[in-house]
Amino acid sequence: MSDIKIRAKLSDDETTVKCLMNHVMETGLRKDSKTGEIVPAHFIQEVVCKVKGQVVMTAAWSGGVSKNPYLSFKFKGGAVGDPVEVSWTDNKGESQSATDAIA
């Protein structure tokens, strides 16, 4: 079970993709309120979005993106049923990906 939710919707000639990822997105600047120690950075650095295997958009992020990030983008073309793949890699080298078909 992947932690990325993707919705891709075609309307006219434009496909709108919305996705939600589960991630803590720690900046590395925040202090733990109990111990006073700095919470180590842990955030998504790179998000790659592919449609039918072709890269449509890559996003580079800092820890300034909110926890459990939301991302939406649009692209031209696309047809119902085309696979949209979203994958992320964080600063610890962990990664995840998910695929959904355009509706």
Partner: peptide, 22 residues
């Protein structure tokens, strides 16, 4: 650190991005 996100768009991508920031 002011830069929050940068998005590289391929030719088919429309100039539109939406996200949530701190």
């Amino acid at each position: 650190t002011p830069l929050i996100a940068s998005f590289e768009l391929a030719e088919s991508a429309l100039p539109f991005v939406s996200t949530r920031i701190k």
